[in-house]
Each structure stands twice: as C-alpha cells, then as structure tokens.
Nucleic acid binder design. Structure first.
Ligand SMILES: Nc1nc2c(ncn2[C@H]2C[C@H](O)[C@@H](COP(=O)(O)OP(=O)(O)OP(=O)(O)O)O2)c(=O)[nH]1
Ligand SMILES: [Mg+2]
Ligand SMILES: [Mg+2]
Length: 572
DNA sequence: GCCGTTTTCGGCCCGACTGTTTTCAGTCG
C-alpha cells in the first residue's frame, strides 16, 4: 500500500511546516490523519473509490480533498506551497534536540539561520550573543545540538528487551528499589522501540537518580531532576527514568506506558467525567480516586483494564467501555515452543538437553528443529537414540527445508517441515519441493522486514499471507517479528484469514522463556487469543498442505490427530 | 483541521525540567 505511506509522509511534512508557522492544533490534526493512514488495512484508493475517506479517523472534508488530490495528481499543492515558503533546514533546526518550533522560527526570521550548519556558523561568528532569550547556556546547548551526530535509529523489540532488562538488573545491583518496570513502547511490544522508559518506586528517589545517572554505561546526562532523569547510553540510546511514590505506581505506569495518543484520549474522557488524570492518580477535585494500580485507574474511568499491547488509540478505549476487550494469549496458555534449533550434527545429548530445557519450564511439548542439511538417515538415528529418555514431554521433530531442497528422501518422516523462502516474494509456478506431502508445514524465517526494525512491508506480507492461505501452510510469530516471521499487524491479518499460527521463541539449543515471552507479547499486540494459536495444545499440528509430491510420500507417522474444529483451507 | 451521551462552534492532556525568567516560555515525556 505505497500510497498510504506516501500520503502519510506528505501529511507529516505539512505538520512540521505548520509547526514552524506557529499553528496550534492543525499539526496534530495532520499527524493524527497520517497515523490513521499507516494503520489502514487496505489501500487508501479503495476508500476513495467507495467514497469512504471521511470514515477514516482524523480525516474530514479538507484532508479527504487532499487525499483525493494526491491520488489524482501525485502531489498536494498546499504542501508544496508551504515547502516553498519554509526552507527545509528550518524544519531540521526544529528537530534538533532541545530546539522546537518557536526557536527554529526565531532563528530563521530574526537571524536568517536556515539550518543546523548555518546555526553553527552563526554561533561561532558570535551572532547569537546578546540576543534576547538566548543566553550563554542556551547558545552552548544549540551548538551542541547542531554538531551532535544524528540520533540513533530505533531498536528492534527483542534487542530493546535485552538492553532494558540488563539495565534494570544493573540498577538493582546499585540501589534498593521497590518496584521497577520497563514502560513505553517496549511494554506495549511495539516492533521497534525508540528509547527505554523505566519506572520505579523508591523511598529515596534522589539516591535512585544518582545511581541511575552514574551507571557505567551512561555516556551523558540530558536531564536530572527529583522525579525524572534522561540519559544517553554509550550506544547513544536514550533512557528515561521516572520515580514516583508507591501509591502512584499504577497511575505512573499507565502514563509511562502510553501510548501518547492513548493517554490523551483517556485524559479527555476523564475531563468529560469531571475527573483529572495524571501520573499521580485519578482525581475529582482534590479527592484522589485511584492510583496504586493500573486496574484502579481504568476502573475509576469506567473502563476494563486495557492490556498494554493494545494501548494505541485504535478503538481499545471504546472496547474497554463496552466490555468487549479480547481475551489475549498469555505465556501460560502455551503448551510449548515449536522452534528450538538444534545445531548442525547435533546428537542425542544435545537434543535431550533441548527437550529438558522445555520440560523444566513446565512445557508439555517441544518442537526440535533440525538444520537444513539434515538427512533422513541422521534424523532416524537421532530419534532412536533420544528414544524414550524424556518423560512428560512430547517431542515433535521438525526440519528446515529450503525452497529448492530435494524432497525428503524417505522414512522416517519428521512431524513438521519449516519451509524457508529463498526470496523476498512468493514464487510463481509450482510449489516448492523442499516440503513433502502429508506433513504439516510452516513458513519459517520469512523475512518481511521493511527497515530492519521488525516491521513488515504490507505489500509483501499480504502476498505471503495469500500464498500460505491458499495452501494451508502455517505462519510463525517469533520474538524478532518481521525479521523472521510475522509482525503484529500482519499476524492480525493472518488471523482474520484463519491461517494456522504458531508463536515461537526461535531460539538456539534451548527453549528460551524470555524469547517466548516477547513473541507472546507480539501475539497479544496482534489481538490473538488462545483459540488463534496452534501451540496452546500439546497436539499443535495442523493439516498438511497440498504440495506437489516429488515422489510417492513415505509413510507418515502422526503421533496424534490434529485437534477437532480446525479450520479448513480453501483452494484459490 | 477534526469532532460531538454536555458542544455544528469551542475546545483540543497534563506535568517535569531547564534557562533566564522576576512569574514563565519552551521543550519534552
Ligand atoms: N500524557 C502524555 N503522555 C505522554 C506524552 N508523550 C509521551 N507520553 C507518555 C506515553 C509514552 O508512551 C511514554 C514514553 O514516551 P516516549 O516518548 O518514550 O514514547 P514511546 O515509548 O511510546 O515510544 P518510543 O518508542 O520511545 O518512540 O510517555 C504526552 O504528550 N502526553
Ligand atoms: Mg519510549
Ligand atoms: Mg521516553
């Protein structure tokens, strides 16, 4: 859906330009519409053709006209006029850390500074000295902002999770803390995370701030106050810490988890109810109604507690009011992980270790995955040697098979095949030989990634979902999202198509509960419940696809029939 | 520019930190 993204980008440009002009609410109106376009499940031109543009949240008469103009002309005259009036460098100035629309405009209008480079030169030439409101400290800050390297890119969720949990552990080592949570986009399980947001309660906030800002990995202190500090790590990654009293922990967690748009909607709702919501609690006048837990905060607003993964202002507040929030998957629902890699040439010991790691987590089933060069003979030996050594855990054997791999040459059959694509798009023509008939198949290591951030390219993910749906092939939700499988947006679409879905940790040698936890969070973000996920059952396999047999299929050992009530696939 | 179980016009979330401010503006979360 290229035009959705293009129009969203044009609207965001307009928003930035209007910011520079000092407009108050219009910029947010354009950003809201841009976000709606990003969230749209279909190409915007389909809405335009049906005359339904105005039904998109944040699109009214004026913006609908601009969408139509772009679809017709490939440009929006209003944007072009603004862009001609305001040098792009002024927008760049506004985006420097610590500078905003007011400063950028003043620099431009009063001092003819039209970009970061010009700002640095002006400062070095002393042109800012004595200008009202620009004292020495501010000028120094401007210069630093103008010469600092560009801010680091967003981090894929899984990496943010590792950095974040490491940081929490480091902080706990140095100072006693009551409660600590990672909040922000990480807690919401966004596929990409900009900064890390930490919330704590402590009887001694200043001690916590001191410990936080002096952590060895801290390169620079951006802000430091009694309740809030911001630092940059050596990596350039920003971390925000907020400390609040224990009785405000729930309200603060609600605030710091966001999203911003969710918070604004919630607080507007509170206003209507005669209430005020902030990070310290819910209040009516000077009476405090809630604050210790998030559930309390939502209840005070007449809402069911909204899972963090859904807090994006995409209708979840109305759903919470109506009691229509979905029952989401939780880690405890899973019977086991279906994607634990065994190393090349793994023997019985390694396989047994992997199985035991799963059993020790209380799992009832594990999918052990052989590397692509595995052979039926080697697999036969491995399975025999592992034998009945394991108790209380069912092993399902899978093998990764490349698209062009020769068909699996004979018995014994594995329990499932992880078919790995060789290119970015589904191929035309006959189905691959890598799989084989009669065996459940999942597309694995599917890379739909658009930007290296775990977010899928909507066009390609739709193509793969179509391809898999037509063949009864399952799709995978790994902790790395679109790098290796579905992200939450495409998982939502796949669920609507009724595809078999598996939530996996995609780990090496051992079942990794932390990776599984992240994958579950992504599944929750997709709105998936236990009924949508195959591996909630210890018989998680799904019907085998229809692939062209390369040779008569070997006898297939199916330890158990797939559960009843499975969805039927349809041919295209 | 959008939007409506108080509004079709008047609102549009609320607070922390910093700098230069003598009472607050700007930026950010
Ligand atoms: N009420 C309110 N809350 C905000 C605002 N801006 C940010 N927050 C809250 C909600 C955010 O999720 C949280 C953390 O802010 P961040 O800027 O780190 O955003 P977030 O973590 O959601 O996304 P990120 O991946 O860091 O870009 O603070 C705001 O303008 N108003
Ligand atoms: Mg954040
Ligand atoms: Mg933050």
């Amino acid at each position: 859906m290229p035009s959705n993204a293009e129009i969203a980008e044009r609207f965001r440009e307009i928003a930035d330009l209007l910011d520079v002009l000092g407009e108050r609410f219009k910029p947010e109106a354009y950003r809201r519409a841009a976000r709606s376009l990003d969230d749209l499940p279909e190409d915007i031109s389909a809405y335009a053709a049906r005359g339904k543009l105005r039904q998109i949240p944040g699109i009214g008469e004026a913006l609908a006209a601009k969408v139509e103009e772009y679809l017709r002309d490939g440009r929006i005259a209003y944007r072009d006029r603004l862009a001609a009036e305001i040098p792009s460098g002024v927008v760049a100035l506004m985006k420097l850390p610590g500078l905003g629309p007011k400063t950028a405009r003043r620099l431009w209008v009063e001092l003819q500074i039209d970009g970061p480079q010009a700002l640095r030169e002006a400062i070095d030439a002393g042109r800012l000295a004595g200008v009202k409101g620009f004292g020495d400290r501010k000028v120094a800050l401007f210069r630093e902002a103008a010469t600092a390297p560009a801010p680091v890119a967003r981090l894929p969720l899984w990496e943010a999770y590792e950095t974040g949990t490491g940081l929490v552990a480091a902080l706990r080592e140095r100072v006693p803390l009551d409660r600590v949570e990672l909040a922000g986009s990480l807690r919401r399980a966004r596929e990409s995370v900009g900064d890390l947001d930490l919330l704590t309660t402590s009887p001694n906030p200043s001690k916590v701030m001191e410990a936080f800002t002096t952590l060895p990995e801290v390169r620079e202190i951006r802000l430091k106050g009694p309740t809030k500090s911001t630092v940059l790590l050596a990596s350039g990654r920003q971390v925000d810490l907020r400390v609040v009293p224990a009785e405000s922990f729930g309200a603060a967690l609600q605030y710091f988890t966001g999203s911003k748009e969710h918070n604004v909607k919630l607080r507007s709702r509170a206003q209507r109810l005669g209430l005020r919501v902030n990070e310290y609690g819910v209040n009516r006048g000077s009476t405090r109604l809630a604050g210790a837990t998030e559930a309390e905060v939502y209840r005070a607003l007449g809402l069911a507690e909204i899972p963090p993964e859904l807090r994006e202002d995409r209708g979840e507040i109305d759903a919470a009011e109506a009691g229509r929030l979905p029952r989401l998957l939780s880690a405890g629902d899973l019977a086991g992980d279906l994607h634990v890699h065994l190393p090349p040439g793994a023997g019985a010991e390694e396989a047994a270790d992997a199985a035991r790691s799963a059993r020790d987590l209380g799992h009832r089933v594990v999918g052990l995955v052989l590397p692509p060069d595995a052979t039926p003979e080697g697999f036969g030996r491995l399975r025999r040697d592992v034998g009945a050594a394991e108790t209380g855990l069912r092993i399902l054997w899978g093998v990764e098979r490349g698209w062009k791999a020769p068909a699996w040459g004979g018995a014994p059959a594995v329990d499932f095949v992880l078919l790995t694509p060789s290119g970015p798009d589904p191929p035309e023509g006959p189905p691959p030989a890598g799989g084989f008939p009669g065996v459940s198949t999942v597309l694995a290591h599917l890379s739909l990634d658009r930007s290296g951030l775990g977010e899928s390219d909507p066009v390609r993910s739709e193509a793969w979902i179509d391809w898999a749906a037509a063949r009864g092939i399952a799709l995978e939700l790994p902790p790395t999202a679109a790098r290796d499988g579905l992200d939450s947006t495409s998982a939502r679409a796949a669920r609507e198509r009724g595809l078999p879905l598996v939530v996996t940790g995609l780990s090496e040698r051992r079942c990794d509960p932390k990776r599984l936890q992240v994958a579950v969070a992504l599944a929750r973000r997709a709105g998936l419940g236990p009924a949508d996920v195959r591996n909630v059952s210890e018989s998680p396999l799904w019907p085998a696809p229809e692939l062209t047999p390369a040779r008569p299929g070997p006898p297939v050992e199916r330890p158990a029939a797939p559960s009843a009530g499975r969805r039927r696939r349809s041919r295209p």
